[in-house]
Design a protein around this nucleic acid. Structure first.
Length: 423
RNA sequence: AGAGAGGUGGCCGAGUGGUCGAAGGCGCACGCCUGGAAAGUGUGUAUACACCAAAAGUGUAUCGAGGGUUCGAAUCCCUUCCUCUCUGCCA
């Protein structure tokens, strides 16, 4: 959520920046400003009335004390009128505030100045491409065939137990999953991220805090009885650790990592591009997250990109990094780098990580602030990234490393798996 | 899940209708004292919003959250969330 004061002072800049997202926000921005003017006016009026009312109430108390009942009763009538007026104003104020709030929720974050304009994912900019794309033998298979061949992932069994998009990992497949999780967590903690385990269900406040609500309500599984949502990403519970917190400047930055399963309804998804592990309703992901001083958030973003890069390189998988264009950029993000692995069995790129700087957009909703050296409270910046999401890493690994002797496990993972080949 | 108790500032803790944004203590910051430190001592120490060009200042709101009674609520009533104790259940 953008700050109203910022909007008020940077109207043209905002409309111009948001046009990168292919949206015309000028009407919205104008209404924000109008509503804000109205809100402040109402606030001032209301405060004045309440002030009067408070003064009179005090007087009434004093009059009662010295026994001047009659005078007190006269004053009482005065306050009754004030009360009526304040009630009306208050209602108007609340509805104006609410209207303003709802509107603010609808305005996406301002793309960073380096974000290219674009109409679709085609316009994302490749900033790096590394690693060799393997030349697979003619009889090579996509990962869902490999999964069946070696009996390591059972999609049908998942269908039986739950439904499509909930695979069952078996034997070496299950162990490989666990190995990847441990490996990623170790890489992250070695880089200074503190590991946390967080709830997999979140309340409404948390979902609002990171921006899943109200604009992405349909993406989350919802448990009506308890009014809770299943997490679509660890980002939500982990970031909400700092909701309503004021951190000392000296304690910044905060670096956290967490492994969680992620649950996504993915309503409307179907077809070949969601086959196998490509898109699931439940998947595992290790997330990294930072709370940063505003001056440092872009340096931190670069650091996160380097970190994710180093993990992928250790796995020896071909990858590329894209800078997302305006139209592909997430609602809450200022700047996002996507990591994609080349999956040789399907002959296409698969997104495995998304690293973003949200600047103060989430922090404003979360009321996540820090005190600077002069004692002023300011919004912090939040960043997060996958490090990494498992299924597509697994898919690529299976496909790219297939040989006639089985699937070769990358060296760095062998200490975690205890085996070096799936056959 | 049932019965009971309770949620007050960074922490502890007082406060059962007006003088309470809130005693007292601890902590923290700055100063005095000291050769230095401790002790002692003085001052300050929440957040949000509004007014103001801004600072100073002023106002409003906030005692888990939401609503109500009242001229006036931390204090009374209702709803809700959470915590603790006992009982039950359970990995």
């Amino acid at each position: 959520m953008l700050e109203v004061n910022f909007i008020r002072e940077n109207k043209d800049f905002i409309v111009d920046s948001l046009s990168k997202r292919n949206m015309n926000s000028s009407l919205m921005i104008e209404s924000v400003i109008d509503l804000d003017v109205r809100k402040r006016k109402l606030q001032t009026e209301l405060d004045k009335i309440l002030h009067q009312s408070n003064l009179i109430s005090k007087e009434i108390g004093d009059l009662f004390k010295i026994g001047l009942q009659k005078e007190a009763i006269v004053l009482k009538e005065k306050t009754i009128k004030l009360k009526e007026a304040s009630k009306e104003l208050n209602e108007e104020l609340i509805s104006t505030k609410d209207e303003l709030q709802q509107l603010l929720y609808k305005i996406p974050n301002i793309p960073h100045k380096s974000v290219p304009k674009g109409k679709s994912e085609e316009d994302n900019v490749e900033v790096l491409s590394e690693g060799e794309i393997p030349k697979l033998p003619v009889n090579s298979l996509p990962h869902w065939e490999l999964a069946k061949k070696y009996d390591i992932i059972d999609f049908e069994l998942g269908n039986k137990i739950t439904g499509a998009g909930f695979p069952v990992y078996k034997g070496k497949g299950a162990k490989l999953q666990r190995a990847l999780i441990s490996f990623f967590l170790d890489m992250n903690t070695n880089a200074g991220y503190d590991e946390v385990q967080v709830p997999h269900l979140i309340n409404e406040k948390s979902a609002f805090g990171t921006g899943q609500l109200p604009d992405k309500e349909g993406m989350m599984y919802y448990i009506k009885e308890d009014d809770l949502y299943l997490i679509p990403t660890a980002e939500v519970p982990v970031t909400n650790i700092y909701r309503d917190e004021i951190i000392l400047e000296s304690q910044l930055p905060k670096l956290l990592t967490s492994y969680t399963p992620c649950f996504r309804r993915e309503a409307g998804s179907y077809g070949a591009h969601v086959r196998g592990l490509n898109r699931l309703h439940q998947f595992d992901k290790v997330e990294i997250l930072r709370v940063e001083h505003p001056d440092n958030s872009y340096t931190a973003l670069d650091g996160m990109v380097e970190h994710v890069k180093s993990i992928i390189k250790k796995l020896n998988l071909p990858f590329r990094i894209l800078k997302l264009c305006g139209s592909d950029l997430g609602f809450t993000s200022c700047l996002t780098y996507d990591f994609e692995l080349f999956s040789a069995g399907q002959n296409k790129w698969l997104e495995v990580s998304s690293v973003s700087n949200f600047e103060s957009f989430q922090a404003n909703r979360l009321k996540l602030r820090f005190k600077d050296s002069s004692g002023k409270t300011k919004l912090a910046h939040t960043l997060n990234g996958s490090s990494l999401a498992l299924p597509r890493v697994l898919a690529t690994l299976l496909e790219n490393n297939q040989t006639d002797k089985g699937i070769v496990i990358p060296k760095v993972l062998v200490p975690y798996t205890g085996f070096s080949v799936i056959d």
